[in-house]
């Protein structure tokens, strides 16, 4: 099965058709997607701003991460699931949109940035106590994360303005 066959299979599935043809299903899923995206990005910003020493300075980084990251993951899973449902409703049109493709690449880069930070830059996270400025690896990861997620929002919004209406 080629990638094109898989896309066609998804697009022609009964669930994709129901989302595409129904009056209220697409906007309902989109509403949940927006709530989840807001919670994902907002909670990531909390940690990023702490890494940049610009907010929550009185909290040790490790405590803040343990407290906020579960919310980030729950919101991200909901955002990814609803995003996938929206995607399959018009998969070929979305794939033909440059902003959509860029958005996926940016999300992958944001995930890679998080993994690199987790396994390399943030190994001694427990030492980053309250009222202390995180080392440069942490600050770079935080700045990069904010920039990538802002770019994700820009691409997400631009999809609506550039989707081929046919």
């Amino acid at each position: 099965m080629t990638f094109r066959d898989l896309i066609a299979l998804l697009e022609n599935s009964s669930i994709a058709e129901a989302i595409r043809e129904g009056d209220w299903l697409f906007p309902s899923i989109e509403s949940v997607h927006v709530i989840a995206i807001c919670a994902t990005i907002g909670s990531i910003f909390i940690l990023d701003l702490r890494l940049l020493n610009m907010a929550s300075r009185d909290r040790p980084v490790i405590n803040l991460a343990r407290s906020v990251l579960p919310l980030t993951w729950i919101a991200f899973v909901i955002a990814a699931t609803t995003g996938f449902l929206l995607f399959i409703s018009n998969a070929s049109r979305y794939l033909a949109n440059g902003y959509f493709d860029t958005k996926l690449v940016l999300i992958a880069l944001a995930g890679a940035n998080m993994l690199v930070f987790h396994f390399l830059g943030g190994r001694d996270l427990t030492k980053w106590v309250a009222d202390a400025r995180p080392p440069s690896a942490g600050r770079i990861a935080g700045a990069l994360s904010i920039a990538l997620w802002v770019a994700v929002v820009i691409c997400g919004r631009m999809i609506g303005f550039t989707m081929d209406p046919t």
Partner: peptide, 20 residues
Amino acid sequence: PGLQIVHILCVAIVFTAATV
């Protein structure tokens, strides 16, 4: 689109602050 993007980012901050 620019205004909408700034609006969405502000909504994300407000909503997360409310959620936390």
